[in-house]
Nucleic acid binder design. Structure first.
Lengths: 207, 207, 207, 207
DNA sequence: GATGAATGAGTGTTCATTCAT
DNA sequence: CATGAATGAACACTCATTCAT
């Protein structure tokens, strides 16, 4: 580059620029600690130590522990999504498999637990969790099923909202029961739910 | 026994008797605080204050905070159970309704959250929750469905474990979605799951 | 015994008699704990547990922790004494050997430390220690040396008080230096001190 | 170095500087409390109050009560030493006088008592006391006597270790006996010990 | 903008002692 | 007389947050 980049030379913030990657390191540490030990046990000291910064460095970015936890949670929710191929059963299985991995990744359920446990003391956490994780996932599942219904694959009066509950909820219940997940677990859940919905492919109808 | 039980009629426990109802007041306070604020935030000071006793009075009964929390949790799990009448659909609805009330009672989900959040730091809590609440409920649901299968109401290859997951899990999912429960919610879940299981009553078969 | 022992039948204290040996068990436990952990760390709960009694049982005998500690200390000081044979050197060695065993018995120096450490908070302990242990021992040593001086074995102007200090103190110093005691340690101390005192036996003088 | 040391001349330690004199005030308070009341009774709250700081200010400097006590003890041991002039008797008297003042300074013996009392529960204290106070003093006394022996002032087979024990120990014994120290106390101890060692000055030999 | 220092309120737990039976 | 229950104050240590440089 021979020329000075005018756009950055004149528009950058005054004073010492923030260390890049520091935000990310802090959020990573906060999320890891919150998932492992819960929101209350996650101490700013430990976050600072694990992130390799000092506490005021954190407080300069987020004004309180709650804000930090929120930011970490939102970053956690921002995951790459599975792609939809158009086949109802396949897409449901893919989506559920993706969800299963999210839940079973280390401390995934502990994080959900923390969020639920803080419902009264720190309701923002559950609100963010719902907004950025629960609702989007449900919307994707709902969209897959609604498209199938539009295509005539499902009975017209099928209760899609209930189907989403059963798909997602079966995972929570299985985890709470502490019984291990088999390889074909997601497939079986999807197939069972599709039965409820009166599913038949266009091939079925043609046959 | 023709004679009066001397040990109870004439003797008396040695030492100063315990203040009556103290145990219950402590456990109530502990459970309330744990459900509202989580295990970590539940402080022995607050439990003592809310129960109207001093801390050593608590420590005389339970040797540590964890033991107290465990006792409160077990007491919470020890609820009166619905009676089974023998009709599959009715019994499932009754059971699920009972579960819904347990979950929706104040802070029921927060308590579950606390238990999940403490999975790494205080695993005893989740273990007790599973032993005294989750597993018994699943066993009752399983028993209802297994009886129905024996009577030929369900298809022989119906996956009862999966059905239980869907019944119970739908509730968790609905709660997490933050959508309100309608009056007929349980009925619709049960009916949907019974479809999956190929349910038909003997009346159906006779007809 | 065919006859009732009148002397005890009529003179014994009213009410339930105290369990014999209980006092001793309590004092033993108290002394052991005080020597091992110090006066402050010796808790009435631990004393009660180790003695197999309850705390009010202790408080009925001694009105406070300090009184109990005093009683235990006095009982500790009441040991069987070495017999004096009349030979100055032999008696000094025997006495010093006896002292050495007392100091080196488990926690002997720790007990002395506790007593010194409590000089400001619980001065009774040091006072009792001096009265029942230090002073008697010094008096025995002084008596041995005074007798020798009377017999003309020591120079007339020998400083007996200083000699006692050197005899006893050498042991403290050796302990503090953390150097091990040899077999002939006491002998060498006594011989050295006797040199200071200009000691010569009558046999010496006769020769 | 011809140049000014830039690091000290122009740079400054990063972060908020420590309140000056805080370390000293904390150590003073800790030592005073430990000497007066013993290690167990010395509470961090009291140290903080007496030093005019808050508890975390203490914990920022020393990670635990034990570490603080150790630091206070080491600071206590770090005293200015008497200078050696080369005359055996004079140097011994000076050294012993110095020791006597250390022991008799307020609570000096109580501090020694605490250190001994904690031998089992907190052995670091006695170890530090030995390392920084007992051993150095003994080494100085030993050096004085060894030099005298080299010069031929003492008999060749004089037991210097024992002599050190008697010099130092006489002080402990005198204190325990609770008899007051006279003005010429140290002189008399030294003279007595020198007799044991067969001391004669070169002047003696020349005469 | 980043640092290390400081704070006040809290944590779970134990203490010597007293009470009621 | 001995028991088990109760108390209020203290214990070492940690917290989220703010300050001074």
């Amino acid at each position: 580059m021979d020329e000075i980049d005018v756009s950055t030379a004149f528009s950058r913030a005054p004073g010492r620029p923030r260390e890049p990657q520091t935000d990310e390191r802090i959020l990573d540490a906060a999320l890891r600690l919150m998932a492992q030990q819960g929101f209350v046990r996650m101490s700013m000291d430990m976050v600072a130590t694990e992130a390799g910064v000092t506490k005021p460095t954190i407080y300069r970015r987020w004004p309180s522990k709650i804000e930090l936890a929120m930011a970490a949670l939102v970053a956690y929710c921002d995951v790459t999504l599975p792609t939809v191929v158009g086949d109802t059963r396949t897409d449901l299985i893919t989506e559920l498999e993706h969800f299963r991995h999210a839940i079973l990744r280390p401390n995934g359920m502990s994080l959900l637990g923390t969020v639920l446990a803080e419902e009264h003391e720190t309701p923002e956490l559950l609100a963010a969790f719902r907004k950025y994780l629960v609702t989007p996932r449900r919307q994707r599942l709902t969209a897959i099923l609604a498209a199938a219904q539009t295509r005539g694959e499902l009975s017209a009066n099928a209760d899609i909202g209930l189907a989403v509950n059963m798909l997602v909820g079966a995972l929570y219940a299985q985890y709470l029961a502490a019984t291990p997940f088999t390889e074909d677990w997601c497939t079986r859940v999807v197939d069972a739910v599709l039965v409820c919905l009166g599913h038949r492919t266009n091939a079925d109808k043609a046959g």
